[in-house]
């Protein structure tokens, strides 16, 4: 019984969340907050894409900013140099990132653990180096300028509110898709790979193929976030491709909770807003961010979503077995999230 309750409650909460996101721009708030919210949604999509690899497949990548940034460059270059429309350049960006992630994945997925991490950094640095030194195309360290405002069939999304809705729409579509993927047999296989890839191999699963496809999906979601980002800022620079951006997204996943569906989005909300709001008060904001990261890792290594879930479990379910089970192994945690 409590399982059904939980499920419907979750649906209500999600519907409410979407409703709030739709209503916010209609309230009399400064356009700055709508822009900030757009940025949060973009990074949420990027972090959710990374989470498919880190949280569900067990492959920690520090090269996702390369997928994010290179797709942003691809769409941006087509828009600024060749005058392609928003839809055309976006479509080209998606094809580009599928090919790129497919190519990188063939090599990267062969490795595991620390080696996987190192290879992903190496790929990221290649893209970063290209963006920095191929200045005739990317604008070099000056960054790429001249990306037009997005327009669909003649309607120009010049105001931040109208573009915000595009971002929201894309995010909802991608989240739904991701949700279906994670809950499919394919998604469950990925989690099996995360827990014990040798056993999955002996059970007859093609571990390499599964991981490779997960790598491509993950890269593509990051790439889509990159396209949204290019049109959001009308500007792309090499720092968007750098390993620092990759690390920031990784922090979003870890702070929110790797292997939980909404964790990375929560991480994006917290990190992007803190970064922008704290720095208005003090020059020492980098230090404060560092302390927050340490606190989260010390006290809630499984991420904030797990923390909320546990306290929720204590208050409402009064010791419901699966939710308040802090000491469960990672597989158990992963499963309970997916099912509930």
């Amino acid at each position: 019984m409590p399982a059904i309750n939980n499920n419907s409650l979750k649906k209500i909460l999600i519907a409410l969340g979407i409703l709030v996101l739709i209503i916010i721009p209609q309230l009399p708030v400064s356009s700055y907050y709508i822009n900030l919210l757009s940025l949060i949604l973009i990074f949420a999509l990027l972090a959710m894409g990374l989470n498919l690899l880190v949280g569900y497949t067990g492959l920690s990548s520090l090269g996702h900013a390369a997928f994010f940034g290179s797709t942003a460059y691809c769409a941006g270059i087509l828009s600024s140099h060749y005058g392609w429309s928003f839809l055309a350049s976006s479509a080209a960006g998606v094809i580009f990132i599928i090919l790129l992630a497919g190519g990188f994945g063939l090599i990267n997925v062969r490795s595991k653990g620390v080696t996987f991490l190192m290879v992903s950094i190496a790929f990221g640095q290649i893209i970063w180096g290209l963006s920095q030194s191929w200045s005739a195309v990317t604008g070099g360290a000056n960054g790429l300028v001249g990306i037009s405002d997005p327009s669909i069939f003649g309607y120009v999304f010049a105001s931040c509110t109208s573009y915000y809705y595009i971002i929201l729409f894309v995010l909802i579509c991608c989240s739904y898709l991701l949700y279906r993927i994670i809950n499919s047999s394919f998604g469950l296989t990925l989690q099996g790979i995360k827990d014990n890839s040798k056993r999955m191999t002996s059970l007859g699963y093609n571990v390499f193929l599964h991981s490779w496809i997960a790598y491509i999906i993950s890269g593509t979601l990051s790439g889509i976030a990159g396209i949204l980002y290019a049109y959001y800022n009308n500007f792309v620079s090499p720092t968007d491709v750098s390993v620092i951006t990759s690390a920031k997204v990784m922090m979003m996943v870890l702070v929110g909770g790797a292997g939980t569906f909404f964790g990375p989005a929560l991480g994006a909300i917290i990190i992007v807003s803190l970064e922008n709001l704290l720095s208005a008060f003090t020059n020492r904001w980098v230090l404060i961010m560092g302390i927050i990261y340490i606190l989260v890792v010390m006290f809630t290594p499984a991420g904030l979503v797990e923390l909320i879930k546990n306290s929720y479990g204590k208050v409402f379910s009064k010791g419901d077995d699966s939710n308040s089970n802090k000491g469960g192994d990672s597989r158990e945690r992963g499963r309970s999230t997916v099912k509930s």
Binding site: S30, Y32, Y33, T239, S279
Partner: peptide, 20 residues
């Protein structure tokens, strides 16, 4: 406001200053 020497941060901060 601090830009961290990063153009995208500079842009975000410029937006914040102008709009907020």
């Amino acid at each position: 406001e601090d830009t961290e020497g990063d153009p995208k941060t500079a842009l975000t901060k410029a937006r914040k200053l102008a709009e907020l």
